[in-house]
């Protein structure tokens, strides 16, 4: 449900960046969503599609890279795809390497005013 709020925040950043680059249109947006972030990509896609209507990012393709959760135990190594922050092997406290991402990476724009 909070995907709506997240899509809104995303669009704010996109709008601001589009203005910064003098873009008339945004055609593609790349974001990273971690497996532990609690965001459902399909719900985010849908919210983005609805909320982007009538704006600079209308019709833009939202590319969501889903980042798996990864933890590192200093004795046993790296484990992927677990919600735990302890080593599944020895039970020791592990370091979270990835999985909490909620980041915009880049966007593809048209009619940028920088002569490139």
């Amino acid at each position: 449900m909070h995907e709506t709020a997240i899509a809104q925040s995303l669009l704010e950043i996109v709008k601001e960046q589009a203005l910064l680059y003098g873009a008339k249109k945004v055609t593609r947006i790349r974001i990273k969503v971690g497996a532990l972030s609690g965001v459902v990509p399909e719900a985010l896609q849908f919210a983005f599609e609805v909320l982007s209507r009538g704006g600079v990012a209308e019709g833009a393709r939202l590319e969501i890279e889903e980042v798996p959760s990864r933890i590192r135990c200093e004795d046993c190594g790296v484990f992927e795809g677990t919600p735990f922050l302890v080593c599944p092997n020895c039970g020791k406290l592990a370091e979270l390497l990835s999985g909490r991402e909620l980041e915009i990476e880049s966007m593809e724009i048209e009619d940028g005013g920088e002569g490139s």
């Binding site: 997240i6 925040s9 995303l10 704010e12 950043i13 960046q17 680059y21 974001i31 909620l102 980041e103 915009i104 990476e105 880049s106 966007m107 593809e108 724009i109 048209e110 940028g112 920088e114 490139s116």
Partner: peptide, 14 residues
């Protein structure tokens, strides 16, 4: 043109 952004989506809330 592709532009790099690299921002936390919830930055405004932060």
């Amino acid at each position: 043109m592709e532009v790099r952004v690299v921002k936390d989506i919830l930055e405004a809330n932060e």
